[in-house]
Design a protein around this nucleic acid. Sequence first.
DNA 1: CGACACACTGTGAGCGCTTACAATGACACC
DNA 2: GGTGTCATTGTAAGCGCTCACAGTGTGTCG
Lengths: 359, 359
Amino acid sequence: MTPVKVSLRSGAVKVVTDNKQVPNHSRSHRARPTMDDVAAVAGVSRGTVSRALNGGHNVSGPALEAVQRAIRKTGYVVNQHARSLVTQRSDSVAFILSEPQDRLFEDPNFNVLLRGCTRALADHDITLLLTIAGTEEDRKRVGRYVTAGHVDGALLVSDHAGSPLLRELKGRGLPVVTCGRPLGHEREISYVAADDRDGARQMVSYLRSRGHRTIATITGPLDTSGGVDRLAGYHDVLGEGDRRLVVSGDYTQASGEAAMERLLAQAPDIDAVFVCSDLMAAGAIAALRRAGKRVPEDVAVGGFDDSKVALSSTPPLTTIRHPLGRISGEMVRLLLGHIAGEPPAAVILPTELVVRGSA
Amino acid sequence: MTPVKVSLRSGAVKVVTDNKQVPNHSRSHRARPTMDDVAAVAGVSRGTVSRALNGGHNVSGPALEAVQRAIRKTGYVVNQHARSLVTQRSDSVAFILSEPQDRLFEDPNFNVLLRGCTRALADHDITLLLTIAGTEEDRKRVGRYVTAGHVDGALLVSDHAGSPLLRELKGRGLPVVTCGRPLGHEREISYVAADDRDGARQMVSYLRSRGHRTIATITGPLDTSGGVDRLAGYHDVLGEGDRRLVVSGDYTQASGEAAMERLLAQAPDIDAVFVCSDLMAAGAIAALRRAGKRVPEDVAVGGFDDSKVALSSTPPLTTIRHPLGRISGEMVRLLLGHIAGEPPAAVILPTELVVRGSA
DNA sequence: CGACACACTGTGAGCGCTTACAATGACACC
DNA sequence: GGTGTCATTGTAAGCGCTCACAGTGTGTCG
């Protein structure tokens, strides 16, 4: 029973523990007790066991107790596949992230959103399955998985316009709620979004009110609602004669840095920039610093998100807060309603300016 | 068909889009075509459709074509529950993270591990389900979910000794592979780990070879194999008369910072510290800097992981690299083997010292 | 020409569960 | 005592699929 070290390919060391008790070779799964076993032990019928399991209505006290005892004794666990086959429900929903996996880890927004959704769903005893669909191939696999009946609905995060995934899910009739406006599908698909356009207006107005004249913006991807709506807000505020400087990033820090460099090359006299995510703002500040500009003295920087980077950045970011906690809560509410048969709806939540050191 | 804005509770604005085409109210799911529908359209029997779907052996060319056409025409998607009910397989495995969700996002190791596993499983057309079991309650829910037959196996990451989750999964006979030695279960459970003890030895030996005399260590949680094994390696190298300074953290940056402060209070003359994760090392460096110590001139800092923080920290970290890519690959290999009926096994992979600026 | 192998196909028996539905017995009421 | 109500229970019909089995028709061989 002592571990045997065996050298393995390319320098690995393998320890094989040859345990004595018969390992659960092949289908030892088959030992799994079924409802009939429980019924037999409890001395009742399968139907009664089922009823006891599902709320215990119309089950007498003694029967209920007997069933519970039998369940403990046999170690019974319901077979979800069998149950789902008849109920057409799986009591789980997918959280689909249509982004390269790195972004999930880089962007704190996802963390907050994910946590919120998990929590809200747990209240309904529904499990959340996180699936990352970064590549085209992933999206296919996820699409197949999700439409195969594994989940009752899907929370779609950060989908880009024209992505076939949304169309496919919708085509299958799977309840879907997106985070952010589903460009081109606003009518048929439920969504929850912050009032991005208004948030952008608030920030740009604020920058103007502080006396800045040449206000640039670094947008998010223009195939997402966050990208286009915040840009629209920027244009809303700027007047006829104002100079408009627009560069796009993809919400990552690196892209913010690169965008800021391009902006600086284009117009060295910029005195404020509205950056459409905190992460990109952090990148922009790094680029400004490298160019010898002080923030906010030479260039004011406004962010968007009020994520934790806003606080850890130096100076801390003046930014727009969107209520991610409520967004996740509303997404879940909408999805569950949708699953229950309600028609699609949309919820727009207000944003708020948070003034800190960067502008 | 114009969106109607309706004010919602607590300041939200709700847009209700009343779309005309009948929304898939209640169980429009029921429109879902079954195998019999496909069979009818293709003019063959259910059995032939099934065979065509599962490899196409013993199906004639024309029949295969007819089935494929019928599938396209009907939009048929297999019902996984029905299939799983008979095959006892779900073609998906769970990636269970027994940590508060924050750590998933803070620690880049998980990112790398997750990506590796996803990729390795995708090659076998198996979906990976990420479940986060941060709280006790989460663990219960996840345990229930996983043992209900939703997945064929589980990859357990960062489980702590004595956690009931592992015991439960094992008790159900679910194939499990852990990342890191499952303390107290080494004999029965498959695992993949880096040679933590040897890695620690390499680092501490290196620090000694550079002339450092008072070498402290900041360990990981001592109920994880990474925690105890790296500490053991530290002790292995230190001799009789050496001073041993041990403080524990929980792998987070904040804990590294706090641990360093305690260490400094305890022994201001420390000239080197072996920190058991890069993230904690970054925290330690921050604490050292705050205390007016230069790294590496006054205090040398050695990390562990060779994660991306090792590069972004200043100075870049001298650290121990463990092959996360291979670890995830081996985990998947072991798990699939286990599912196929092989007995448990363990794989230990070598580590490597990477010298950079911090020591 | 019968026997046999072979490729292909249809049939039916479940997988483990939920859920009408019918059956049962206890009880109260007239 | 007859009858209706009610709670509780057992029974059986599937949910949509796979897979062993039993055909069916063809070609090949002695």
